[in-house]
C-alpha cells in the first residue's frame, strides 16, 4: 500500500530531523550591553576560528544583561552600569570589567565634520532637557566661534532600551548639572524630557544618521565605523578633548581599581588634563555558584583568551584593553569568588 510507504518515509525523515536537532556540545550564550557588541562579536569570531568554541553574544542592552542573568537565562550578562556589592550579594553574582571605552555625543548637522563641534557638560544637559532647541543658540555659538551653525531645530536621539551607555551618559550629566540630577536623574533608562528613542547603540546611530539636525550619544566605535560627526567635550580640567583611545586611557589610568569592592567603580568625569569625561567600563556578570559550572568556565576561558590575545582587535575598534595589573586582579578575584 503506497500510503504506508509514505508514512514510513515521513517517520524516517522525522527521525533524521530530530536526530539532527539534538546532540552537539552546549554553546555559551551571553547577553547585555550593546556597547561592547562590536568587539565581543569580533573576539567571538576569532575565538571560534581558533578553538571551535562558540560564544553567542546578543546585544539587548545593559538592563537586559542584568535582567537576563538574574533570570538565569544566559551564562553571562554584561552591563556598562556596575552593580553595587550589595546588589551582587543579593543576586549571588560576581562582577568584573571586560573592556574600557567611551561614550561620545554624535551630531548630524550640515557642515559639521567629526570632532569640530565643541560642547560642555552643562550644554549637553540643557540640550538633552530640551532647553536649547536650535543649533545656532548663543550658548553653542559662543564656544564654537569658528563654526557656522544654521537655525535648524535640534532633535535629541536617546536610547529606548535600558542601557549602560545611557547610564554613563546621564551619570556624567548628573555630575555636571545639578538640574539634570534633580529633574531626570541617572539609571540604565530615564524618563527623557524630549527626543526620539533608538534601540541599542545601533538604533541611536541609525536614527542620528537618518534625522537632520539630530544629536545622540553612542560608543566611539559606532561613531567611527559609521563616519559620524562626534564632538569634543570639555573635561573636568576645563580642556576640550577629542574622544580617542588615548583620552579614554588617560581617564582609566586615574581609576582606583584596587580599592573598588567587586570592581564597583564609575569613571565618568575623571580628573586629568587629557581625560575623556564620559569614559565607561563594561562589566561582565556571572553566577558565583553557577548551575552549569562548565559553561561559566568556558565563558571565563573566553575572557582570559580575549585579554591575552584580543588587545590588538580592541584597539582597532577604539576600545582600551584592560591593563595587565587589572587582569591579574580579576583572575585572583575569580579564584576567591567563583565556585565552579
Amino acid at each position: 500500500m503506497y500510503q504506508s510507504i509514505q508514512t514510513r518515509l515521513a517517520v524516517a525523515g522525522l527521525a533524521a530531523f530530530i536526530g539532527a536537532t539534538s546532540a552537539q556540545a552546549a554553546d555559551i550564550t551571553g547577553a547585555g550591553a550593546t556597547f561592547i557588541y562590536p568587539i565581543l562579536s569580533k573576539w567571538s569570531d576569532s575565538y571560534n576560528n581558533k578553538t571551535g568554541n562558540k560564544i553567542n553574544y546578543q546585544s539587548i542592552g545593559s538592563g537586559g544583561g542584568i535582567a537576563q542573568i538574574k533570570a538565569g537565562t544566559v551564562t553571562f550578562g554584561s552591563s556598562d552600569k556596575p552593580l553595587t556589592p550589595a546588589e551582587l550579594h543579593d543576586a549571588g553574582l560576581a562582577q568584573f570589567p571586560s573592556v574600557i571605552g567611551g561614550v561620545v555625543p554624535v551630531v548630524n548637522v550640515e557642515g559639521v565634520d567629526p570632532g569640530k563641534l565643541k560642547l560642555t557638560g552643562p550644554l549637553l544637559a540643557d540640550i538633552f532637557q530640551g532647553k536649547i532647541t536650535k543649533w545656532n543658540d548663543p550658548a553653542i555659538a559662543q564656544i564654537n566661534g569658528d563654526l557656522k551653525l544654521s537655525d535648524a531645530a535640534i532633535t535629541v536621539v536617546h536610547r529606548s532600551d535600558g542601557s549602560g551607555t545611557t547610564f554613563n551618559f546621564v551619570n556624567y550629566l548628573s555630575k555636571v548639572s545639578p538640574e539634570w540630577k534633580s529633574k531626570v536623574g541617572e539609571g540604565t533608562s530615564v524618563q527623557w524630557p524630549v527626543g526620539v528613542g533608538g534601540k541599542g547603540n545601533e538604533g541611536v546611530a541609525a536614527y542620528v544618521k537618518q534625522i537632520k539636525g539630530s544629536i545622540g550619544y553612542v560608543e566611539l566605535a559606532y561613531a567611527l565605523q559609521n563616519k559620524m560627526a562626534y564632538t569634543s567635550v570639555q573635561n573636568s580640567a576645563g580642556k576640550f578633548v577629542q574622544p580617542s583611545a588615548d583620552s579614554f586611557q588617560a581617564a582609566a589610568a586615574s581609576a582606583d581599581w584596587k580599592n573598588a569592592k567587586d570592581f564597583y567603580l564609575v569613571i565618568t568625569n575623571a580628573p586629568g588634563e587629557n581625560s575623556w569625561p564620559i569614559t565607561a567600563t563594561n562589566f561582565i556578570l556571572v553566577y558565583k555558584q553557577p548551575k552549569n559550572g562548565a559553561a561559566t568556565q568556558s565563558a571565563l576561558d573566553f575572557f582570559t583568551w580575549a585579554w591575552a590575545e584580543g588587545g590588538k582587535q580592541a584597539e582597532e575598534l577604539d576600545y582600551v584593553p584592560l591593563p595587565k595589573g587589572l587582569v591579574d586582579q580579576i583572575e585572583s578575584y575569580w579564584k576567591t569568588e567563583i565556585k565552579l
Partner: peptide, 28 residues
C-alpha cells in the same frame, strides 16, 4: 519609541506592542 504624550502627529510616540518588543528582554 518615545514615552511622551504629544498632540502633534509628527512627533514620535510609542505603542503597546512596540514598547513590549523594545523593552521586554531588558526589564531589570
Amino acid at each position: 519609541n518615545a514615552h511622551q504624550l504629544t498632540a502633534s502627529l509628527l512627533m514620535p510616540g510609542n505603542s503597546i506592542a512596540a514598547t513590549i518588543a523594545n523593552e521586554f528582554t531588558e526589564a531589570d
